[in-house]
Design a protein around this nucleic acid. Structure first.
Length: 959
RNA sequence: GGGCCGGUAGCUCAGUUGGUUAGAGCGCACCCCUGAUAAGGGUGAGGUCGCAAGUUCAAAUCUUGCUCGGCCCA
């Protein structure tokens, strides 16, 4: 009789060439090449011309080394901000930049010299800087290619570099603004100084290492004068870990609120020591009480017995004067060493009396300056004492009787057997000396050598002077604080972090004694010591540097810069260079305000960097801009955390737990890294690792397959001929447009909040839950089997088209390559998805009443699938299509027919019953040979249902 | 050592001003489909909310201490 016909060719299956497997590592470079070929970035600029601008200003990464995961995260976030703003229709240009000057690069070049046994001092500064410049340029080029490969869109043909001569000239111009407005001063202040590199170091250039063999000594200073009679002739004891500072001791400090005790020791002397530290003191020195009856009081009553006896409050010590252990040498050492009150004195360690060397400590300097005691500048740049310094220890003499001048960080110099200690011991002043103290001590992060505090002439920007040139502004610090209050912070906690740093910071030390950087192009009058303030001279300097690079700043040209009315011999030319934070703090000036990038403007809408930049770029930019312009260079600041390894630990090369984004791109593709960066909570520290990347890959495949389905279902869709009006659509289609409207609002809010985690999550959940598991599944039958001319199938495809148009735009800032691949598959003749804007969705789509009914229906649907499950387990039925369902009448939302329910539940039939549970049984109907539904109208398995019969008949007729 | 920030299922994340049984997606296990097929659908098992005290009728949520991790600083 009737042989079973194979109806497969009559079913409208999705058809597309878009592959399920992505092959991103192979595919992405080709897509990137095409973008460059068509000039995508320029096309986008042209397309958005005249629109509202959104300026994200790029914080310059340092031009050294390959792109690492931190760069990748940072740039993906920046790119996503730019692309999402562009999706909203704004003109959002992106000009990337690099930080090129500074010690790390200089150090690299010096390292190369050392390998070649070449001495830096024998090389012309110009030649040396040229090598630094070439080195920086090399890494700029490397990083640029890596960032492009990541899919970061921007002005790659003209990035800003801090070493471009135009930038160097502009940075000098910014410095001159500070000079011309009186905010710049030269001060002698102890700064972190590396004797090895012979330069002052910024905080960021210093690292702390734990030492266990540092020297510690107790030194007695004889009291020669005091309002307290018992103290005269006694000894004040200081404790220090830096014996080398004793030669420049100038005073002692006590804590006004600290309690002191005069210890009558068994060596016959009386020692003044903080009460709380007596025990430690005796232990270190091996001394004991002179009278066996004395002991350290343990109880309050024992202590009370001492009060008024040999027990003093710190403030009582005012007016007490000691003399230096080496006072017999006369001169500097013969001067009195007064006891001064210092709030910084604690009783955590030592003796509660602190020796003051204003040359070598911040507290020391400040306290001494307040009492008219000046530093003596005895230690030179290489860490050695001046040749003419009177005393450094008698045995610091070589075999020929010639004095050896050792660096102060030299270990033997500071050792208990060293020259300082030996002489102190001989003078009877050394009460203890050992080399076993454990603490952390600052080292240069480049040379790993110890650094010291050293007083040197340095240039500072004053933080607490009134800003006379800016109307209504208080001090620089004050204005910066006001501007922090006016700035948006994402996340909000960044505000507190930045303000507490600005609140507590000292004046800005901007000078460095190095070669690779922008000069502090200033003249100082030799006689008056005054800074030359001459806008015309300054302009000549700026122009020369902008034209010829920093090489223009050389002695030979002093006359040219000073002009005909001044004698170059009268002026000292400053040869220091600027802190690189001043360079990058000025980017808003030489990038955002520059004519070279007319697409930019200032202030920027957003600065976006890692949370470490609260100390760095956010702050230097804020101070630079407030000092010169009286306002912040940004309207908003977004910070991200750091990327840890899979277990939440810091990534480091030495631990071998780093994830290299370049390798991830090779292995999985740039889109995977991008999706990862946007999936984690970047406002906090977050992790990366194999398992996490695998999960990201799963999310990616689901999104990709959703697009593959849409492409397949819409392969032959012709909007003009097929589209159905909203009003004519079935309710499910209208409900999906409601859901899309919600998603759209959600995503737009996420864009405004820079909440990309939410953005990706919302998008991913929508495709999983609303589309794949619900809408696509329910409408599968209609797509495959309905009459193509029928309203229902056309309505479905119309919504699929709407979904496609929306989703491809939503995903385009995230999966930049895949979005393009999808777009070009559907529209091979169009330029790029990345030129598109979000559509404004029709206001008629949201329908709360409809949504309430469908939301309830989906809940019922869950109950139904749950009820079907046991029958499938026992193999009574295989799929829901074989199930007859009875649902409680009361559980069904209004307005659904039984047939609609069967469609929505993907079951054979649905009827309503009175009970409160769902009943499931196997249907007795037969299976349609084409659509596989089990329906009463199908006479036998394999025969056709009415719908399929009609469709097949028409196809046959047209064949 | 100090300041600030964080610790919720295997993973990525939600959890309003303290208020039923702490949620989602993914993964995993099991099942179905074999006409989205290296895809699709379903069901299920996973949590002492870092630990310990405290406040409260009630704590993932508030307080304190500790611990682990991070950033910045010394």
């Amino acid at each position: 009789m009737t042989e079973t016909r194979d109806y497969r060719p009559t079913v409208f299956l999705p058809k597309t060439d878009f592959p399920m497997k992505a092959g991103l590592p192979q595919k992405e470079p080709g897509i990137l090449a095409r973008w460059e070929e068509i000039g995508l970035y320029e096309k986008l600029r042209a397309a958005r011309e005249g629109r509202e601008k959104f300026i994200l200003h790029d914080g310059p990464p340092y031009a050294n080394g390959d792109m690492h995961i931190g760069h990748a995260l940072n740039h993906v976030l920046k790119d996503t901000v730019v692309r999402t703003q562009s999706l909203l229709g704004k003109d959002a240009p992106y000009v990337p930049g690099w930080d090129c000057h500074g010690l790390p690069i200089e150090w690299k070049i010096e390292e190369l010299y050392r390998k070649k046994k070449k001495n830096k001092n024998e090389v012309e500064p110009k030649e040396f800087r040229k090598e630094c410049r070439d080195y920086a340029q090399k890494w700029v080029d490397v990083q640029r290619e890596q960032l492009k490969r990541l899919g970061i869109g921007g002005r790659w043909d003209k990035p800003y570099l801090t070493m471009r001569p135009e930038a160097e000239g502009a940075i000098v111009a910014e410095l001159h603004k500070f000079a011309e407005t009186g905010q710049l001063y030269r001060g002698a202040k102890p700064v972190m100084w590396s004797p090895v590199e012979e330069t002052a170091l910024a905080d960021a250039e210093v690292e702390y290492q734990d030492l266990t063999d540092s020297p510690q000594i107790d030194v007695a200073f004889e009291i020669v004068e005091s309002p307290i009679e018992e103290l005269v002739g006694a000894h004040a004891v200081i404790w220090t870990t830096t014996p080398w500072t004793i030669p420049v001791n100038q005073a002692l400090a006590y804590g006004p609120d600290v309690s002191y005790w005069l210890v009558r020791a068994n060596d016959g002397r009386d020692y003044l020591v903080a009460f709380k530290l007596v025990e430690d003191f005796l232990k270190r020195t091996g001394l004991n009480f002179r009278d066996s009856g004395d002991s350290i009081p343990n109880t309050d009553s024992e202590l009370a017995a001492f009060v008024g006896k040999l027990h003093f409050k710190g403030s009582d010590l005012a007016g007490t004067v000691t003399r230096h252990p080496m006072h017999r040498l006369g001169g500097f050492y013969a001067k009195p060493r007064p006891l001064l009150p210092g709030d910084f004195v604690t009783t955590d360690s030592g003796t509660g009396i602190v020796h003051m060397a204003p040359d070598h400590g911040e507290d020391d300097f400040d306290l001494c300056r307040a009492h008219g005691i000046d530093p003596v500048f005895a230690v030179m740049g290489d860490g050695r004492y001046r040749d003419d310094w009177l005393w450094l220890g008698a045995d610091d003499v070589d075999a020929d009787g010639k004095e050896r001048r050792r660096s102060v960080i030299n270990k033997p110099f500071n050792s208990p057997e060293g020259p300082i200690c030996s002489d102190l011991r001989e003078a009877g002043a050394l009460l203890s000396a050992s080399a076993d103290y454990a603490h952390s001590y600052p080292h240069s992060w480049r040379s790993k050598a110890k650094v010291v505090y050293r007083c040197t002439p340095q240039w500072f920007i004053a933080i607490d002077e009134k800003l006379g040139h800016i109307d209504g502004a208080p001090t620089l610090r004050g204005r910066a604080m006001e501007e922090i209050a006016n700035t948006r912070f994402v996340p909000e906690k960044g505000r507190r972090r930045l303000s507490s740093m600005v609140e507590g910071r000292p004046d800005w030390l901007i000078s460095r004694q190095r070669a690779w950087g922008v000069p502090l192009a200033l003249f100082v009058h030799r006689e008056s010591g005054e800074l030359l303030v001459d806008p015309e001279a300054n302009a000549r300097i700026q122009q020369a540097i902008a034209a010829e690079t920093v090489d223009a700043w050389e002695e030979a040209r002093a006359a040219e810069f000073l002009g005909p009315d001044r004698n170059p011999d009268d002026y000292e030319m400053v040869t220091d260079i600027l802190d690189v934070w001043f360079d990058s703090g000025s980017t808003h000036a030489f990038v955002l305000e520059s004519d070279e990038w007319p697409e930019l403007q200032s202030p920027a809408d957003l600065y976006l960097e890692g949370s470490d930049q609260h100390r760095g770029w956010f702050q230097s930019s804020l101070l630079e801009s407030c000092g010169t312009r009286g306002r912040a260079p940004y309207k908003a600041v977004l910070t991200h955390g750091f990327t840890m390894d899979a277990k939440g630990f810091k990534q480091s090369k030495s631990l071998g737990n780093t994830t290299d984004p370049n390798k991830v791109m090779e292995q999985f593709g740039a889109d995977i890294i991008r999706l990862w960066a946007l999936s984690v909570d970047f406002t906090e520290d977050h992790r990366i690792g194999d398992e996490i990347l695998k999960g990201v890959g799963d999310t990616y495949r689901k999104l990709r397959n959703t697009f593959r389905y849409l492409l397949g279902a819409l392969g032959d869709f012709d909007y003009d001929k097929e589209a159905v009006n909203f009003a004519d659509m079935p309710e499910l289609e209208r409900y999906m447009l409601h859901r899309l409207s919600l998603l759209d609002a959600n995503l737009r809010r996420a864009i405004d909040d820079f909440d990309f985690n939410e953005y990706v999550r919302a998008l991913s959940e929508f495709t999983n839950e609303d589309l794949s598991a619900f809408f696509f599944d329910v409408r599968k039958d209609r797509l495959y089997c309905d009459d193509p001319k029928g309203l229902e199938r056309r309505a479905y495809r119309t919504v699929l088209d709407i979904l496609f148009q929306a989703l491809i735009r939503y995903i385009s800032p995230v999966l930049v390559y895949t979005a393009e691949e999808v777009w070009s598959t559907r529209f091979p003749d169009r330029d790029s998805i990345h030129l598109e804007e979000l559509h404004v969705l029709p206001g008629e789509w949201p329908d709360e009443a409809l949504a309430t009914r469908f939301d309830a229906l989906r809940e019922l649907r869950e109950t139904v699938t749950e009820a079907i499950e046991p029958l499938r387990r026992e193999k009574t039925i295989r799929s829901g299509l074989e199930a007859d369902i009875i649902v409680p009448e009361s559980a069904v939302p209004a307005g659904f027919s039984d047939a609609e329910l069967a469609d929505l539940f993907i079951t054979a039939t649905v009827t309503r019953g009175q009970g409160d549970g769902v009943t499931v049984s196997r249907t007795s109907d037969h299976k349609c040979g084409r659509c596989w539904r089990l329906l009463p109208e199908v006479t036998e398995d394999g025969a056709l249902c009415g719908r399929c019969d009609g469709v097949v008949a028409e196809m046959d007729a047209n064949a």
